[in-house]
Design a protein around this nucleic acid. Structure first.
Lengths: 208, 208
DNA sequence: TTGTGTATATTCACTGGTCGGTATACATCA
DNA sequence: TGATGTATACCGACCAGTGAATATACACAA
């Protein structure tokens, strides 16, 4: 078909993305995805070997855009690394305040498929989270003064995923801000003891 | 039946608990629960109106014991509040290192049922998490010197639930330790700026 | 240009199986 | 006798995946 408008495979992935993300994996039938994509189920099974394949494709399609969004939010925020990371959380809080917000698809899919250890969707989730962690780690390394960049990146990830879970459970975006505040404090107190662990920005560029 | 050995209802809840927790809600059929409990499905439906009721009963049965376990771990650890909270995470890391460990049932159930907003299981999950948060908050309030006890309790909860999610995804308990370290640092830096935000324990009892 | 072959893409109708829940009858005991 | 509990067998809905046939597009030869 026309390559510019709706290549069938992409339309199916898009439909799967909307449905899987908003209702969950097991709650959405293959028939529902096919109907949403305007395609017969048999056509869907022409493009994907199984529902599991479709799930994996859905997550793989979200990996890069998700990371890029984080990087954009980071770049758009002024201040030191702590403030920039906090900016990510503030943007997430804004997203999470929409009633249709459904948290992190990678996390939720992994939870739904937890009894299938080697499932490609779980591998995709792991890879995605690692990619974000590595990106944060590289930022803290460039920062230079940070004592344990890897540990710090992990702790920010813990706050991030914790916020996804808690905000989804309580439907209260203020937890996202609390997570951002915690992340910023952890980053600032990870800098050499120079500055007091207070509001004022810590050193922005100070190589060892 | 005999009240001391296996009251049917409790046996069903116990069976549901094992299955739901280890495989997930949607992955476990009512028939499977009935069989595990050594009871016919009709008997199960005599004691519970629906599968949803059973799910709620499963979570309600876990609320108090879970909190009690946290409180025991907290009490058993020596040191200041930061060290005691870190002790909880260390104990959780030990639990999480067992290959059969499956994270937090409240969180996972809430994720599985996310498209049923008012579901009793979600309410149970919310209540449980709030209860832990309130308990932490009361500890920080008793500590006296903590600046914003509620905010701090929320941040510890964020790290806790983040650790549940991330450890489950990566199957790497060291994230649990990283979360404990972050929690301890947040608690110590929440005390009035007296001490440097460093390794040495901050003041243990110092009323305002 | 027309005819033929082939790979891609799509459809309709169907299967085998599972699941939540129920109808009905039977058992036990106060 | 009536309340409580158990057993067997079943229903209707749904669901992942399939078989067989068909449509489209493009290659290349006559």
């Amino acid at each position: 078909m026309s390559d510019t408008i709706p290549p069938t495979r992409e339309r199916i992935i898009a439909a799967a993305g909307k449905l899987f993300h908003s209702e969950g994996i097991r709650a959405v039938s293959v028939d529902a995805v096919a109907e949403k994509a305007g395609v017969t189920k048999r056509t869907l099974y022409y493009h994907f070997r199984s529902k599991d394949d479709l799930i994996a494709a859905y997550l793989e399609a979200r990996d890069q855009p998700n990371l890029a969004l984080f990087q954009r939010w980071f770049a758009e925020t002024d201040g030191d690394a702590a403030a920039k990371v906090e900016g990510i959380f503030r943007n997430l809080a804004r997203s999470a305040s929409h009633p249709k917000w459904k948290g992190c698809g990678f996390l939720r899919t992994s939870v739904e498929l937890i009894n299938l250890p080697g499932h490609p969707a779980i591998l995709a989730g792991r890879a995605h989270k690692k990619r974000i962690e590595d990106w944060l780690c590289s930022i803290f390394e460039e920062e230079g003064a940070v004592k344990e960049p890897r540990q710090l990146a992990r702790q920010v990830i813990l706050l991030l995923d914790g916020a996804f879970a808690v905000v989804l459970l309580h439907r209260d975006p203020s937890y996202m801000e609390a997570a951002g505040d915690a992340a910023a404090r952890l980053i600032r107190t990870s800098l050499p003891k120079r500055d007091a662990p207070d509001v004022g920005r810590a050193c922005t560029a100070l190589d060892p």
